[in-house]
């Protein structure tokens, strides 16, 4: 099977089958829905405008908590304070990346510029974090166990976990090829930069 993401002369390109695009759109949509804040109707509009969520609390859903983690391990008040001032924009930024990636799926062949690739990388990461939480991947051993589920023909129709595991492995594969392509693009950019830069050449 050809790599879904590849780096070439024109940049990073991505290509998916129709069924894969449909699957990814659904995953992106689900994570966007998870990230949407449950706005209280009596919310202070000024606080909303400047991006503060006065009542922000640690999410109860472990998957959402993984996307919006605490910033301190031992200072709950510091974590709450940080959350009040940053959580809303983090939610919006993540949802924005997921929406941008979903929009890119409108065409079968994608050519990703640097910003689009970054959106895809965070979108796929967030999908994997949510699926991993649903699959109970908490240790390296869990991850290996899930990684072994690779054959669609092994999955019974009603085996939701096995289906999720296959989806997780598929998204992991996408992420692997995307990060490889981004790394190559980054190396190419930085080595070009060195050639064109104001190095010591000519200054004996």
């Amino acid at each position: 099977m050809a790599d879904p993401f590849t780096y070439g002369r024109r940049g990073i390109s991505g290509r998916f089958e129709d069924a894969e695009r449909e699957l990814l759109r659904g995953l992106f949509r689900d994570v966007v829905a998870l990230l949407e804040p449950d706005d209280a109707p009596d919310e202070d509009p000024l606080a909303a405008l400047v991006g503060i969520s006065p009542d922000a609390a640690e999410p109860e859903d472990p998957a959402l908590k993984r996307l919006l983690p605490n910033v301190s391990t031992d200072d709950d008040e510091a974590s709450r304070e940080f959350r009040r001032f940053t959580e809303r924009s983090l939610r919006e930024s993540k949802a924005g990346a997921l929406r941008a990636a979903a929009l890119g799926l409108e065409s079968r062949d994608m050519l990703l510029d640097e910003a689009a690739a970054a959106h895809w990388a965070t979108a796929l990461t967030d999908v994997r974090l949510v699926l991993a939480e649903r699959l109970g991947i908490h240790t390296e051993e869990d991850a290996e166990r899930i990684h072994e589920v690779t054959d669609w023909s092994d999955v019974e129709d009603d085996d939701v976990d096995a289906y999720l595991a296959l989806v997780y492995n598929f998204v992991t594969w996408l992420q692997t090829t995307l990060v490889d392509a981004m790394m190559t693009a980054f190396r190419t950019r930085t080595s070009d930069g060195k050639d064109a830069g104001d190095g010591p050449q000519g200054e004996d």
Binding site: R66, L67, L68, P69, N70, V71, S72, T73, D74, F82, T86, S89, L90, S93, K94, A121, T122, T125, D126, R128, L129
Partner: peptide
Amino acid sequence: VERQAIAMHNFGLWATVE
């Protein structure tokens, strides 16, 4: 480091400040 923590969270990495 708080600004960097936000960036890490945006990348999907779990970061804390201390």
